[in-house]
Design a protein around this nucleic acid. Structure first.
Lengths: 203, 203
DNA sequence: CGAAAATTTGACATGACTCAACTGGAGTGG
DNA sequence: CCACTCCAGTTGAGTCATGTCAAATTTTCG
């Protein structure tokens, strides 16, 4: 039906991803396959716009998304990047159907697997394992965000940048400097200087 | 058995707190009462020490706790304050029984209602409603922490302080200046100056 | 190729930290 | 109750981190 067992499918990554946390029968996974939808986005396309209700939780198969808030002065502040094998979505908005204070946008051409609220409800009924999976996911997200708060208040911009580089291998080459600055909470101008000092030191 | 219907109990606040989010039968609540334990702490006592496993989720009936991380230089960084009608605990450590990177300590004499892991398991079995309640709680916490990240990277120390004052009514009078500084990510010296400028302006 | 955006660089301004000295409670032991 | 100590908080002077503005340069993309 879905994909014969020798075909590489866009779902393979998701399956491996879930199985890293819980055990999954073929039946469970058949349910997953039936409820997630593939979506391809060109660079710069929005998955969610600030002020809208978040309708999907999105698993990133390839590419990169940024989740960010735009303040009154029009400045972007990036909460996180989601790359292959990661997730994006505003859980609070998704669950409570309230308007989101974040936008989500493709930084690169990106392939997603998306599930909506009714899909998720069905998933929990037909494959209760998955509820545990998502609980674990949210707990991990909460822990990661807490760490982020601590690092943000405790480290200098330079150290935050180093942390970012090691915590997100390869991402520095993929996303523009201004986006990394928007993640770190510094100006692009200043990040440019930090990088220069860096390369100066190395010689 | 537990408390006759005219007696004010330490559990009343918890009941009201839960019922603000889900509906609760008397039976459900009897289960809650049987699984939470009252604990009273003097000022400065620890509920959790960094490096230990978090054994309890704690509901604050009265008083105030701080959850903080101490870095290599010995500096405290406060993730959050938990006052009456709030929660404290390191969920990730609690669930996965890993060592916590946070300490939790009483800022004032404090009364807590605590539940441990096996208590929580029983709670979910005997009153499945409560699983929904805790899910909502975690989702809210995730949302709040995300907002905190954005504010921390986007606002100046002065604006963060103002935000703090309005977001935590009355707390400024209850917790020492140095703790508020540790929350905001600035030095106590600098916060003292911010306050002075503030009161100067008002005259 | 040409326009627009991203990045770099310089000069200067401001925010926030450090260090050190001083002040004023809050506890503690006599 | 006093004297003492010990923190927390305040204040001043100097320094370092980071921001702002503007111009020059490079990259991206139609």
């Amino acid at each position: 039906m879905t994909s014969d067992r020798n075909t590489l499918s866009v779902f393979d990554l998701l399956r491996a991803h879930i199985q890293r946390r819980i055990t999954l029968t073929d039946m469970d996974f058949a349910v997953v396959e039936s409820l997630f939808t593939v979506r391809k986005l060109p660079k710069k396309q929005f998955v969610l716009k600030q002020g809208e209700v978040c309708r999907y939780e999105s698993f990133v198969v390839s590419g990169c998304l940024k989740s960010f808030h735009t303040d009154q002065q029009g400045t972007e502040h990036i909460l996180r990047f989601s790359v292959e094998d990661g997730w994006a979505g505003d859980l609070e908005s998704f669950v409570q159907e309230t308007s989101s204070s974040f936008s989500i946008q493709a930084v690169e051409p990106t392939t997603l697997l998306q599930i909506d609220k009714s899909g998720l409800r069905q998933l929990y009924q037909r494959a209760p394992n998955l509820e545990t999976f998502f609980r674990l996911l949210n707990e991990k997200a909460l822990g990661a965000t807490a760490q982020r708060v601590i690092q943000t208040v405790s480290l200098s911009a330079e150290k935050r940048y180093h942390q970012f580089v090691v915590a997100h291998p390869g991402l520095v080459q993929r996303v523009p400097l201004k986006d990394i600055a928007a993640y770190l909470g510094i100006t692009p101008v200043f990040l440019s200087r930090l990088r220069r000092r860096e390369t100066m030191k190395r010689s």
